[in-house]
Computed example of a mutant assay.
Amino acid sequence: MTACASFPALGTTAQVVVTDPGVLDAAAELLRRELGEVDLACSRFRPDSEISRLHRAAGRPVVVGPLLADALEAALRAARLTDGLVDPTVGAAVRELGYDRDFAALPEDSGSARSEAVPAPGWHRVMFDPATATVVLPRRVHLDLGATAKALAADRAAGAIHRTLGCGTLVNLGGDLSVAGAAPIGGWRVGVGDDHVTAADRPETTVTLYGGGLATSGTTRRRWRRAGETVHHIVDPRTGRNPAGRWRTVSVTALSCVDANTAATAAIVLGESAPGWLAARRLPARLVASDGAETLVAGWPRDEPAEPAVA
């Protein structure tokens, strides 16, 4: 038997599922606390966040707190592993696309014309010493940790809940999933689809997880219009623009949610060459093209017909 709780957080829906119903309330409270701390450390929309203070101190060495240090280390590792396809210095590019506030507060169409694209300055320009948690952020370099921070929050929360309460745990943050501890009998049944909101009731496919993480990146959810043009939140750091629309969603499983989300985002940016890139790294993945055609790589299973327990 499992028990589930969900609530809005980080501009999406947070869900925790535990194998011991008696600790559900405590698990939900731990998740709320973790997400609140992540938001205070990493949100570029909050003037009181630690990352906003880091931007204001650009050009000077700053010692950051443990959570932001973890988030920066994860973001820079993602950039290194993907040769810059996932790059935390896309902040100015994302803002130029109009994503300059919490997604729920974005207007349907800003009406303002877009200016020149803003390619990412490059993750290598961020000087970070993990041993001392010291960061030097160059002036005019703006960070956006969106490609890794939510996935990191899922990994951290699942681990913390399992360690504290001793139960098997699944945390789902808008399609970024992480599991810790012993899975229920038969594993965690997870529905996968373009929209995490409807995937539980109407999954496009269903998989079983026993450990690690699963993440879905896509262009169908966080979309808005800028001067009449539809844009979305995934940016090609090389151009500062949305990548060509080869894939509408990519789902990946890996040893952690951070690694899964890093690979899924990189695949959206890569476009046509994504299946080969994922296969070379032995990352099971499901890629759905803009016309709905499905490509499975590296052992991603064919559809499991049973109903999912979570999505």
Rank of each mutant, 00 (worst) to 15 (best):
Arg286Met: 14
Ala154Gly: 04
Ser110Val: 09
Val269Thr: 12
Gly159Lys: 00
Ser110Ala: 14
Gly166Ala: 06
Leu283Ala: 14
Gly98His: 14
Ala79Leu: 13
Trp188Ser: 07
Trp277Val: 15
Gly292Gln: 08
Arg140Leu: 11
Val252Tyr: 06
Thr12Asn: 01
Asp87Trp: 02
Val258Tyr: 07
Leu296Asp: 10
Val94Glu: 10
Thr2Val: 14
Ala244Gly: 10
Phe45Gln: 03
Leu81Gly: 02
Ala117Ile: 10
Ile161Arg: 00
Arg163Lys: 07
Arg46Met: 11
Pro275Arg: 14
Asp291Phe: 08
Gly228Pro: 11
Ile185Lys: 11
Gly65Gln: 11
Ala28Gln: 13
Pro243Asp: 07
Gly271Arg: 06
Arg139Gln: 15
Phe128Asp: 03
Thr206Ile: 01
Gly186Ala: 09
Arg282Ser: 15
Asp100His: 13
Ile161Thr: 05
Asp155Gly: 00
Leu10Gln: 05
Arg77Cys: 05
Asp155Leu: 05
Leu81Met: 14
Gly84Ala: 07
Gly191Lys: 00
Arg225Thr: 09
His124Gly: 10
Thr249Lys: 06
Arg114Trp: 06
Leu214Asp: 05
Leu31Lys: 03
Phe7Asn: 01
Leu85Arg: 11
Phe45Cys: 04
Asn172Ala: 05
Ser110Ile: 04
Gly271Val: 11
Pro237Ala: 05
Gly276Cys: 09
Val94Leu: 15
Thr19Tyr: 12
Thr220Met: 08
Ala306Asp: 15
Gly213Pro: 02
Gly211Cys: 02
Val38Lys: 00
Trp188Ala: 02
Val18Arg: 15
Cys167Leu: 01
Phe45Asp: 12
Arg140Pro: 00
Arg246Pro: 04
Gln15Gly: 00
Ser52Thr: 09
Arg140Cys: 05
Val23Leu: 11
Arg44His: 13
Val269Glu: 10
Gly36Gln: 08
Thr19Glu: 03
Ala5Thr: 04
